[in-house]
Design a protein around this nucleic acid. Structure first.
Length: 300
DNA sequence: CCATAATCCTGTACGC
DNA sequence: TGCGTACAGGATTATG
């Protein structure tokens, strides 16, 4: 499941292998993949014809590829969200279509960029860039102070040099909700999904149901620091491939799965204290935590 | 405005 | 063996 480290791994791969190459043909094969683009899948493919990407940029779990200069739409980007199972794969040659191939961009030099997505929560769309309020770069990968319009409400992420982490901490402490909910709220801080939320809370020794407005500032700061730390470490391992739906642009899995301490480890001993990791329903999904290291709040 | 529930989707794992 | 069901969950949309 692609969260920040996985999307960043993909962004890096695209930046290395897919920039400044002319797109000779582009085809979006599924209406669902282009559902965010009002012109429809055929127009989306047509719009990419004979164009090139000149940067690959990421904020949180959003990735966008900026189109090279053309007077009428120089500030336009192909916005990519991988959803649950989206993959961008760089092909040296046009290969046989993968089972869930949703779009293919063929380069004039013979290679291709494939978008494969089993569960179809991912999408592609073309979007104008809008200025960032603070004038800082819109995301990692470009100096341009712009983001695609649908990304304007998404907060900066924990690996963004322009993030004001102290302000995020203050905002979290005003929220009347559980800390894990706040971590997963992409308008508060972006890039954290279920896996890294659980891992960050385990590291910080904070129970996922702890109320934001009852946590000491120190604890919230610790959670944010741990989240940044665990995602940086995961990035260094190429991300987490928990269920094989996440791979990099070359089709390789990430190696961080073996370093997980809580996520997916129900019934296994906590690597810190030996208590058995428990799993609970939370927000229509699962929370994994150590019942001894991460003390449950009295209420709720 | 804020918090939360419902919703989209497909493959896999399981119980009967 | 096969069928039905639960489950995985990011982000938008709807509802309270």
């Amino acid at each position: 499941m692609p969260e920040l480290p996985e999307v960043e791994t993909v962004r890096d791969g695209v930046a290395r292998h897919a920039l400044n190459r002319t797109i000779a043909r582009a085809a979006v094969l599924s209406d669902r993949t282009s559902r965010r683009y009002l012109g429809g899948r055929l127009a989306l493919g047509d719009a990419l014809h004979d164009r090139r990407f000149d940067a690959a940029v990421r904020r949180g779990k959003y990735l966008w590829l900026t189109l090279d200069g053309r007077a009428d739409d120089a500030d336009t980007a192909l916005l990519v969200h991988l959803g649950m199972s989206g993959q961008l794969l760089v092909r040296d040659q046009v290969a046989d279509p993968a089972r869930h191939l949703r779009a293919r961009l063929e380069f004039a030099d013979g290679g291709a960029l494939d978008f494969v997505d089993q569960r179809t929560f991912g999408y592609l769309t073309l979007e104008p860039l809008v200025p960032t309020p603070d004038g800082a770069p819109g995301g990692l990968g470009s100096d341009v102070a712009g983001v695609p319009a649908p990304v304007a409400h998404i907060a900066r992420d924990l690996l963004d040099p322009a993030l004001d982490r102290a302000a995020v901490s203050r905002r979290i402490r005003t929220k009347r909700t559980a800390i894990k909910r706040a971590l997963l709220d992409q308008t508060v801080v972006s890039g954290v999904g279920n896996i890294y939320a659980d891992e960050a809370l385990w590291r910080a020794r904070v129970h996922p149901e702890r109320a934001c407005d009852e946590l000491p500032a120190r604890a919230v700061n610790r959670v944010l620091a741990c989240a940044a730390e665990v995602m940086a470490e995961a990035l260094a391992q190429g991300g987490t491939s928990f269920d094989e739906l996440y791979v990099n642009v070359n089709g390789a899995s990430g190696y961080f799965t073996r370093f997980l301490h809580s996520y997916g480890r129900e019934g296994q001993p906590c690597s810190r204290c030996g208590s058995l990791i428990v799993r609970e329903r939370f927000m229509n999904r699962s929370s994994y935590f150590c019942p001894r290291c991460q003390r449950r709040p009295r209420s709720s």
